[in-house]
Design a protein around this nucleic acid. Structure first.
Lengths: 246, 246
DNA sequence: TAGTGGTCTAGACCACTCG
DNA sequence: GAGTGGTCTAGACCACTAT
């Protein structure tokens, strides 16, 4: 007898979502745990894989579960609170929330600014840049892909540093640059292919993109950063006095 | 002969997405325009509705198109830039970006704070609140559902005011309250049922939720606000001097 | 090699919108 | 009443992961 025989009202989709949601919120399935496979779930609920998948995608949108491509579905851990205005290092921020952080260097590209990078850096023609691609983990889960785009002329020799550390720290210690001003944008969109691959996302899955532009103490534009967060992993949290009133 | 006969590589999904994307970006299908129905598209591309729908959902995630429940799919207009730290009125903000704004009052509820409202207001037991639900339109399209949750004791008589206007304006003119400090959170999640209904979203569709808490000049918590944005309609944009350095 | 999710077929009925 | 998207069936093959 299928699980759905007890269903009284609403669509199957609603029922499956509600059922899974309750099991997650009650802790019957706990954070980070893998759900049964789509085929198993469709048998359990007496329906097809498509319907089960629709329910799972919907819970994913809600931020309750996430998937690793072709690996399965997992229960999302708690979101990390993140203030893009704060200059706190990533590792310190994660530690303050009693979680563990890791950073892996993916690759470094040396290019001339074009497209999105040129726009963000307000670049003239033929501006040499370094692009540092890193992947960041919270409690062992890859949740954030970061591209730092640096004006090469301002950061001579930076590529020989340990790039898994805080770049802000290197800016300060090696170059005596402080971030005076930041501009940033937050956009819900889908992951570009190289980002999806790094985060084990399927093509076209949702992402939270944060683009940040930093100016150093003399007001010069220094670098910009493109962050791609798994959308269930983060809540942007800003506490600020209104500059107009202060 | 189906359109896909010219396809050389990649999945159908990728091809359909790319084809629609190019037509949108080239302006062949312009902003706000309705796409052909899913059935028409599946015939055009020589495939099934499911595959077409997957492609459409993916472009929706990207922010390129949006849907009105059971009405169809439309090309997204440009995103509105929004700074949650700024005290600019909604209508003024939209006007500054050469767009037109409208606000409709949905309903007002008088309740005692509980659940999410109680947490946001840091409420003790039995705190009376007004909840003002409004729907906001940009160029005629419903893109934002707002709930303002006010401590009733601080806002006696506010319900007789014109609530389609800026509440911040009423706060200032009628009560002499200024917002001194704001805290806010941004969370990508899915729309609760009443929000989905107001925005013509299907159940469980993605939304950008912004929760803001405002303090008046004496530091007292005054009200909080829950904003639910259609995720393709907005880019959060903040330009700020780092308080730590300033 | 077994198992997973990703993609896809070829239909169907339903709830709702619109004219 | 015609048309739309929302939901659903009952399968299939493929690309990739894990072992």
């Amino acid at each position: 007898m299928s699980v759905t025989t007890t269903r009284q009202y609403g669509t199957q989709l609603t029922y499956i979502k509600q059922n899974l949601r309750e099991q997650i919120q009650a802790g019957v399935i706990h954070q980070g745990q893998k759900l049964p496979s789509e085929r198993e779930l469709s048998e359990l609920y007496g329906t097809t894989r498509i319907t089960v998948k629709d329910a799972l995608v919907s819970l994913e949108t809600e931020g309750l579960i996430y998937r690793e491509e072709r690996r399965g579905w997992y229960v999302s851990p708690e979101r990390i609170g993140y203030n893009p205005l704060s200059r706190t290092h990533f590792h310190q921020m994660i530690r303050e929330q009693d979680r563990t952080a890791d950073t892996r260097l993916i690759r470094v590209r040396n290019e001339v600014a074009s497209g999105e990078y040129a726009r963000a850096l307000d670049a003239g023609p033929m501006l040499p840049i370094h692009i540092i691609e890193r992947l960041r983990y919270i409690d062992g889960r890859a949740v954030l892909f970061v591209e730092n785009v640096l004006k090469a002329a301002l950061f001579e020799g930076i590529l020989t540093e340990d790039l898994t550390q805080s770049l802000t720290g290197i800016y300060r210690d090696k170059y005596h640059y402080e971030t005076k001003r930041s501009r940033f944008e937050v956009i819900p969109t889908s992951a570009p292919a190289h980002v999806a691959k790094a985060l084990n996302l399927a093509n076209g899955q949702p992402i939270l993109k944060i683009c940040r532009i930093n100016y150093k103490q003399d007001g010069e534009l220094m670098d910009c950063e493109f962050e791609y967060w798994r959308p269930d992993a983060v809540v942007i949290r800003i506490d600020s006095v209104d500059p107009a009133v202060r």
